[in-house]
Each structure stands twice: as structure tokens, then as C-alpha cells.
Design a protein around this nucleic acid. Structure first.
Lengths: 214, 214
DNA sequence: CACCGCGTTGAACGCCGTTCAAGAAAAACA
DNA sequence: TGTTTTTCTTGAACGGCGTTCAACGCGGTG
């Protein structure tokens, strides 16, 4: 029968579910092979028949987190057809705030996405990198209207810079150490920063083409 | 004799030195109690007579990294007495680039500063937080000239936002995953972003005072 | 020289991810 | 169906980790 394969697939799912629950509730460090096996109802060794190592399981959970982010960011999109740069800036602000809200609502699982490092020597699998690229594409989309004269490469660089800045503000904003701001203040800081970077896009295009300066 | 205390102090230093070498060369994950003891010439148990736990040793190395950063950022200061806002912006750009250069030159030890998490339940010691505050003060200094009408609190918030954005760009810029930019491009992106945020300071002040908006 | 208190030691503890010999279950065959 | 072969599953065992603590030895004292 094909029962065997079904049971394996079901167990695989149960393991990912269990890992997801743990990571979302207690963070990466709380993920233990023995707990996982007990919760999914199998032997510890079975985990290694279905996954190469625990890192792979962590990546599966990370993939789910990225999927959640995709949905959230998609809901920040502008209505079709609008092409003004004001609307593009507004969309970028909505994207940034949506990112902040997601990180605030799912802090622990969101942190796991960035704290996790593969064991040395094992690179990130291609499918995971591809999923990140898909997310980045959501940022590049409104940039087409905002920066019509940029080529694809320059837009990608701009998107990268913008995301990095937004991510930095969100990450430090949710950190408990250092005097932390109340959430509404973080929101306004973030929105203002995105608008400022968008307003300074001329310089950033020059930067994306020309060489460095001291 | 007081010989005993001297020997203990010397051993303490040797342990911190060994930990620093390891963290700078191979990163946080490579730090092992047994290696440390061997390298410093003592028993594993001795480490726990001089430090409460390995985390404390990691913090000592982190403190040295922060001290290195203080020196590097201090060298980006403007000459005394200059008070124009153009000069203030230039100083902020120099600070950001100095930060980037430091992170690029000492990537592994710099990463250790941010990747490290205390064991659950044990908060960061006050002296460590204070040292971070001193560093932040270096950013707030040029802001006095740039934002004379801001009160101290608003300046602190602006400094925090600015640093977060800079840190984000530096951190993602040095990440190997995702298409990575050549260093000169990162420099120009970073400089342009700092100038853009500084140029948008009016909005950021409003943000630091007023309430949030969607 | 004998004694004692205390700083130092490293074997031992508990926990971790990962492996693999052996047992159980399924498949193939007669 | 009974028997053999293959394949999957299991959990005790392995090596390595941070941390502890009973025991040891050494410096200071009587």
C-alpha cells in the first residue's frame, strides 16, 4: 500500500507543527529533538529519517513565517493601476508599518527568522533563499512607479537599502534593552524615516551607479 | 601575601584574552569552557570561580568591542566649535561610515555583540547597558547642532532611529546571503541614506512629539 | 614539623544533537 | 497461506557541551 508514505507525510507535518508551536511560543532555543519526538509521537531517531537535521525543521518553520509575511505585506498593496509617486510612497509606508505590526504581533517567531544560523559549512538551501527573494519583490513592485528611470539593478539596490533601514528600526524598536519607545512612537518614527529615504531617492540613485566617496 | 589576588587577577585577564581571541577569530559559537581553560592554563572549574558563567566572559569581550567602537567613532568627530548643520550632517555621515568600516574590519567580533543573548532570566548587567548609552551619546552630540529646537528626549529618539537604520544597512550589507553588494556601493548607499534621514528631520521631530497615524 | 583552612582541581552530572545496531513491520515470493 | 527478504522504525548509546562539587594539596599558622 501507499499507506507507508502517507503515514510518513503525516508525521512530517506533525513534526513541523510541533516545531512551529515551540518556536512561536518559546523561541529557537527551546526547540529540542526529544520534546519534538514526544509531542509528535515518534522516536527521536525518526526525526532524522524525515529531516537531515534540526536546522531543516527550523527552516520549514521559517518558511511558514515568510508565508505569513507575504500575506500581510500583500494586504498593504495599493489598488491596481495607481501610478503616482505619492501613492508609491504611501504604499512603501504601509509596507513598513505592516512589517512592524507583524514583527510586534509575532515577535518570537519573527526573531527566530533572523537569529537562526545554519551549522557551519551547510549553506542555506536554494528554495529558502528563493522565498526571501519573492518577499523582496513585494518591495520592488511599488518602486517601479517611484523610480521609473532606475534600471532593475538600481531598483533592487534601493529596495535592499530601504528594507535594511526599516528592518533595523523594527528590530531595535522591539528590543527590550535600551530605553524602549512606546509602539505608537515607533510607528511614526518608522513612517517618517521611510518618507525621508523616499524623498532622498535622487541621491540614492546616484549612489547606486557612481563609485564610493570618503 | 597578596600574591594570591594577583595571580587570580592575571588569570582573569588571560581568560578574557583567550575568549577575545576565540570570539574575534571564530565567533561566539566556538567559545568552549574546556578550550578556554586549556588556553589560559587552568582547570575548567576555575573559570567559575572568576566568572559567574560563560555569559559574563562574553560580556567582558563585548565590552572591549564597545571600547574599540568608542575610539573609532571618536575619530569621526568634527573639529571643535563648528556648529553649522551642514557640518553636523557631514559628521553623522562620517560616524555611519566609521561604523560600517569597523563592522567590516571586525565582522565576527562585531556580530558577536548582537547575536549574543543572555540565558533566560538573567538580565544584562547595568554596567554593560551604561557602556552602550555612552556610545549612543556620541551620536546625540552632533544632533545638538543639527536639531537645536529638539528637546533632549526628542534628540534621543532621533538618534535611536538614525542608529537603527544605519545598523540595519550595515548588518544586511555584511550578510553573505542574498545578493550582496560590493563594499563601495554599500558605503554610498549608507551615506546617502544618512543624508536623506537628516534632511527629513522636520517630519521626524513631528513624529517624536505627536501621536501615531495609520 | 604538624596541622588546618581554603583556593583549586578535574571527574562527574545532566542535557544536548545525532547515530546505528537490532528489532519490528511490510513486501516479495513459493 | 507460510517463509524469506527487504525496508522502515526504534531508543540506547556516543561524543560534546556548560556547570558543579567532593576531594586534594598548598600556604600560612601554632
Amino acid at each position: 500500500m501507499a499507506r507507508q508514505a502517507d503515514r510518513r507525510a503525516a508525521l512530517r507535518m506533525r513534526l513541523i507543527d510541533a516545531a512551529e508551536r515551540t518556536i512561536a511560543a518559546e523561541g529557537l532555543a527551546a526547540l529540542k529533538a526529544r520534546d519534538l519526538a514526544r509531542e509528535a509521537g515518534c522516536a527521536v531517531g525518526m526525526i532524522y529519517n524525515l529531516f537531515a537535521h534540526l536546522d531543516e525543521l527550523v527552516l520549514c518553520v521559517g518558511s511558514r513565517t515568510l508565508a505569513m509575511l507575504e500575506v500581510v505585506l500583500a494586504s498593504a498593496r495599493s489598488p491596481e493601476g495607481e501610478g503616482s509617486s505619492e501613492e508609491a510612497v504611501a504604499e512603501l509606508v504601509r509596507l513598513a508599518l505592516a512589517y512592524l505590526d507583524f514583527a510586534a504581533a509575532h515577535t518570537i517567531r519573527w526573531r527566530a527568522l533572523f537569529e537562526h544560523r545554519m551549522a557551519p559549512g551547510r549553506p542555506l538551501p536554494e528554495w529558502f533563499i528563493e522565498q526571501q527573494r519573492v518577499l523582496f519583490a513585494q518591495i520592488e513592485r511599488p518602486l517601479t512607479a517611484l523610480l521609473p528611470e532606475f534600471d532593475r539593478g538600481a531598483r533592487r539596490i534601493f529596495a535592499r537599502t530601504l528594507f535594511s533601514a526599516v528592518h533595523g528600526i523594527v528590530a531595535l524598536g522591539l528590543e527590550e534593552k535600551l530605553v524602549s519607545l512606546p509602539m505608537p512612537d515607533i510607528r511614526t518614527q518608522l513612517a517618517a524615516t521611510v518618507r525621508a529615504i523616499a524623498a532622498g531617492r535622487a541621491e540614492l540613485r546616484a549612489a547606486a551607479r557612481g563609485p564610493a566617496q570618503s
